[in-house]
Nucleic acid binder design. Sequence first.
DNA 1: CTCCGAATTGCATTCGGATGCAATACTGCC
DNA 2: GGCAGTATTGCATCCGAATGCAATTCGGAG
Lengths: 351, 351
Amino acid sequence: MNKPAKGQDKGDKPGRRRATSYDVAELAGVSQSAVSRVFQDGASASKAMRERVMAAADKLGYRPNAIARGLITQRSNMVAVVISKLTNLYYPEVLVQLTQRFSEHGVRVLLFALERESDTATVLEQMLQYRVDGILTAALFTPEQLRTIAGAHIPVVFYNRSSRDQLVSSVRCDQEEGERWLVDELVAAGHRSFGIVEGPADSVVSIERKMGALNELAEKGISDVTTVSGDFGYETGRRCFAELVERRGSPPDAVIAANDVMAIGCIDEARQACGLQVPGDISIVGFDGVGPARYAAYDVTTVRQPVQRMTESAASMLLERIENPELSPEKRAFSGIPVRGSSARLSADRS
Amino acid sequence: MNKPAKGQDKGDKPGRRRATSYDVAELAGVSQSAVSRVFQDGASASKAMRERVMAAADKLGYRPNAIARGLITQRSNMVAVVISKLTNLYYPEVLVQLTQRFSEHGVRVLLFALERESDTATVLEQMLQYRVDGILTAALFTPEQLRTIAGAHIPVVFYNRSSRDQLVSSVRCDQEEGERWLVDELVAAGHRSFGIVEGPADSVVSIERKMGALNELAEKGISDVTTVSGDFGYETGRRCFAELVERRGSPPDAVIAANDVMAIGCIDEARQACGLQVPGDISIVGFDGVGPARYAAYDVTTVRQPVQRMTESAASMLLERIENPELSPEKRAFSGIPVRGSSARLSADRS
DNA sequence: CTCCGAATTGCATTCGGATGCAATACTGCC
DNA sequence: GGCAGTATTGCATCCGAATGCAATTCGGAG
């Protein structure tokens, strides 16, 4: 027992099972309840008790079983975070930040990654089985699924997906507003013909961005607009630009891409295949403000999402609703941060 | 209590609690054991039984409680996935793929994101409390922590972190081999003076890459090598290149960066600040094979990690060890895939 | 030294599903 | 129709911690 055979049992009982609160109780000569109380926050326990129990506990390498605790307290202290395919370079950052926020509040993250944004059914089943305390999702659920979730009294917060019609909480970046800024700048710079490269058809974000741009263009009285659609990826961005040129016969004055990655694809295609100067011959703008958008070769003019504030907001909204289930749904929209890169010739100044 | 106030209970009992197997049993007029069996795979239950139970189950919206199940079966069906700060663009892909692999096998992912790679202590505590069935980590643990994990009989697989000395399983990309290829190509192309831009000092991957490059350079009899260190980020890449030039007085023939993102930083700095042609005046190579490395403006010569195969391998290694705890540790190293971009002038052909 | 209220501690029960064992219901076969 | 053999089903118990309630201890005041 105390002869280090291979050096890998320093404090562990040679026995199989992990130590339980009963084991600790026995060793410390107290009741199981006492052990349980020592490992809680607001529980009453004398200093002496605390010490005896702690001593026994770490002699046995005891750790409270979160599973058992979850069963009795009806709180798993886990939230589900749902992401769909991250073709969008921008999610990883979000994911890490969210995880850290939750972690700070003693909440664990159960991660679900969807192949397609429509694979929500099985994922929902899993979340429910694991009795997550809340759901933070970057994928949409059907109204029926939402009803199921509501029936289980699980708070949900949508991330950059607002079901306009549904009564749910959400945190999002105001896509329309951002697009309006982009359009205004481009128009002010004298551009009159536009190309719009939209993202995947099933992406709400993409649709919002497209509509935002189209509406603002219409408002500015600009009708020379060609739209092509892609999937948020680089290669597609290139193909979209080529298609744009082909369909129009010549490049437009400016291209508004659904995100930065596609904008970069457009820039490359414009330069390589069409021999255009960007900026100069054409202005190309994106959305998101991801890392590569800042690379010198592109320096994309874009609208950066305030990721930090958004994740903080999302996490706290969810946590609040876990604590207080009666809170009514709330939608928060954050303004994106305009980034004047060099991929577009913008008006000098007029914030 | 049973007058649908707002119309949001369509099949749900108006009561508070979620349905349990007892509720289902009662409604179906059978025993709780029967319900339990119907919801298992290899359990024996007659067709009639199955139907009655299922009918009752979905009338009540019953879902087995994974927490309770985990308590009795001693299997949480959750694995912990630990990632550290993802300044590396390459992780997100890994994360999603891993999650999907596990998901296919009915295993959930509990995500832990470290601020610094050294914050493993609290994270470890959490993992143990949640009784995860296995750990897949991209961060290192101390020998003592590993002993604790081993004591709890939890299998661990390291991802791109091999503790050479420790007896643990790991999946990695052979960094040295990749660097050797890069060096060979550069030398064959006639380059004789080198700059090495390494990553963060606490990154095993970075160290392996640097050593791989240095060893091969030494073997080739090349001694004109300057090393500067950064942190895997773009901005740092730029600063590193500047520092390199400053320290040497002039740019080297070639730069070997610790990863693609830094290589891109170097390329931008070389072009913008030094007015160099890349390739032409200087060759710059990276590692990883991330998306931006393929962007036309950079087209980085690099070694691509076979992410798909690596994640599959890692997931199955871990799952196997969960099923069969007696399996001995295993280290798998995958060869990277050489990618001849245009950021370096390489020899024509000699695979 | 005694008594009262507050703080500790222990007892017993609970959470929801899994499973060994015994009882019962079928199946096929002679 | 009867019987052995197998497939179903139910009973009782268990997993590990939390907690209401009662018993006990402790502290301080009079």
